[in-house]
Each structure stands twice: as structure tokens, then as C-alpha cells.
Design a protein around this nucleic acid. Sequence first.
DNA 1: GTCTATACGGCGATAGAC
DNA 2: GTCTATCGCCGTATAGAC
Lengths: 183, 183
Amino acid sequence: MPASAKRSRLVAAAKALIHRHGYYATTLADIAHAAKVPLGNVYYYFKTKADIAEAAIGDYRRWFTDMLTQLDELPHPEQRIAGFLDIPLVHLTQYASNGCPIGSLCQEFGKSEGALLRRIAAILSDQVMWIAEQFRLLNHADPQADALDFIARLQGSILLAQSLGKKNILAAAIQRLRRDVLK
Amino acid sequence: MPASAKRSRLVAAAKALIHRHGYYATTLADIAHAAKVPLGNVYYYFKTKADIAEAAIGDYRRWFTDMLTQLDELPHPEQRIAGFLDIPLVHLTQYASNGCPIGSLCQEFGKSEGALLRRIAAILSDQVMWIAEQFRLLNHADPQADALDFIARLQGSILLAQSLGKKNILAAAIQRLRRDVLK
DNA sequence: GTCTATACGGCGATAGAC
DNA sequence: GTCTATCGCCGTATAGAC
């Protein structure tokens, strides 16, 4: 039932605008306009603004779940991790100017919206567990701690690149992560 | 001239509330109430809400500058870095539940407020340069890159601890940073 | 310098015709 | 299902008395 063209356009617009301007700064009018849907009609598909965010988060989660499942097809853990690092590399410019769509929402929702925080943070949690699994296969002494450090380095580097306005920082950090893991 | 009791109270209230709830979610009425200053009177001290944020950022910058200057008195770079890591350790609970006051403002301002972003990001930049100087003294091959990685790990760990609701993540990350640097 | 009252705009959400 | 008009609230900012 969620497969309506308008609904999809609304969610897509919400994801793009929220990534660029943040959740609070994005208005329903902005989303409706970008999706070419009249403002009042938005409420036929979503009861509240938070519901749109939830749909956007669901989209992100499905996307990452699919991506990690695809990467699981690769034969070696090193290849899988390299594939994982390709994600921020492909979106380098976007991540460096708008931040990680997951990480920045965690920041925003971490301040107030408890229910939405748990949903968006679950994606980060998925990533940590997936990386930990690869590290376990690579015989790390403490795969969980190493995975947390890995994701922290990635998220922190995105923040630094965005804050200092230098996407090179992110590119170099990805390179460094790849080297440290695959050495 | 900036040393008015009311003004100081307003800035202090702004810092605390913005750290807890973020800049956009914090209203001038909240700040005025917490500082026990009538709403209308706020505008005698600050022309706009952004001006209050600027004052808060100035406060943070002075605080960190003083702290780093104090740490410079310590004889060995290792001790200085250990002292630097004591900052998030002392504020562990607060950082784990509300994030880093600097990092989370960078996220928030990175989305829209360009002028304020540059000011708050300067603090991160200061930290990176200061850490890089210590690494240079410790004969690191690439002090700048190592410093960026160091701050990224710290910021990313704070984000993970806050998002996943486990302050242990931050405590462990600090321990790990200390061990990696001082070994 | 201080404080009350209020203007003004924008946003989330609703009513109700079609 | 779709869309226009609009309500009600809240947040920033101002006017102006004291």
C-alpha cells in the first residue's frame, strides 16, 4: 500500500531536503513543493511531520540493509570492508558538504526526539555489528571495540570535513581506514 | 563593557540550553527564563538570537584556548594529550547524553548558518592544530593527519555514545585513544 | 537600563468543497 | 483521493511606558 507515486516523491524530497538543511529547518511546505504535491495533500499520506521522518528513516535503513547484504556476497572480509568504504567515497562531495545523512540525523534527534533517535541510531548499530562481524572473521582480538572505533573515525571525519569545509579530509580519512584495515 | 551580571547569566543559560536541546529548539523565552531576565530585556544585550549564539561560541573558544594554554605548561607532550583527554572524561555523562557542545553545534550550523559555522569550527581547528603540535614533538611522520584522525575518533565516539545511549562507548574510546598515543 | 504588551511572520495541522 | 483556504500556536523581534 505504500507504493503510491506521490508518497514516494514526498519521501524522496524529504530525504534530500532533510539531508541538506536538517529536520527542523525543513518545512512541510518545502517538502510538498519539491515533491510537486499541494501542501494540504501531504496529510493524506502522513499524519504528522514526524511520520515523514520515520518513512525517510525506513528508506535509509532498507537501503543500508540491502547494501550490506550485497556486500556479504563478496568472498573476503577485506573486500567487504573496502566495499563499505566505497559508500562515503561515492558520495564524497555530498557528505563533505551536508554530512552523513544518518550521523547528522542522530545529532539532531539526539537532542530531543527520543523515538526517532532510536530508529535512526539502529542504522548506525547495524553498521557497527556488520563491521564487527568482518573483524571477527579477520581474527581481531576485540572485534566490537574495533568496529566502534572504525565507525567513529568515519563519522568524525565526515564532521571535520564538513565543519572545516575540506572534503580532502574525508577522502584522506577513508584512505587511511582502508590502509589500516587492509594492511 | 561585556561584564554585566545579566549578560553573563544570559550567555551561561544559552550555553547550557543549547547544549541540551540544540540551537533551533532553544527559544529566547527559554534562555530568558533560565537566566531570570524578562524576555524583552534580552534585546538590550543582544540584537538577535544569532548574537547570543556568537557570544556563547566566544565563551567556548576562550575556555578551550585557556585550557590548551594551561596544558602547554606540562613538560611532556604525552602528559599534555592525556590532559586534553581528561576534558571529555570529566564531562563523560554530559557528553554522552548531549553530545560535544562544539561538535553538535558544528552539525547544526553546518546545515545552514554559514557565519556561525566558521566561528564554532575554528575551535575544532584549534584543537587539531594543538594536537598536531604535540604529535610533531613526538616525531610522528604525519602529525597533521594523525591529529585529524585523533579528533575525528573523539568526535565520532561521542556521537556513537550519545546515539546508542551507552556512555561506556565514550569511556572506552578515550581509554583507547590514550593507549594508542601514549604507548 | 528595565520590563510589559504586542506586532508580525511562519509553521504544523485541519476543514471542508470537489 | 485531491486541493484551497485557513486556523491556532509559537517564536523572534519591537514599541514604548517607566
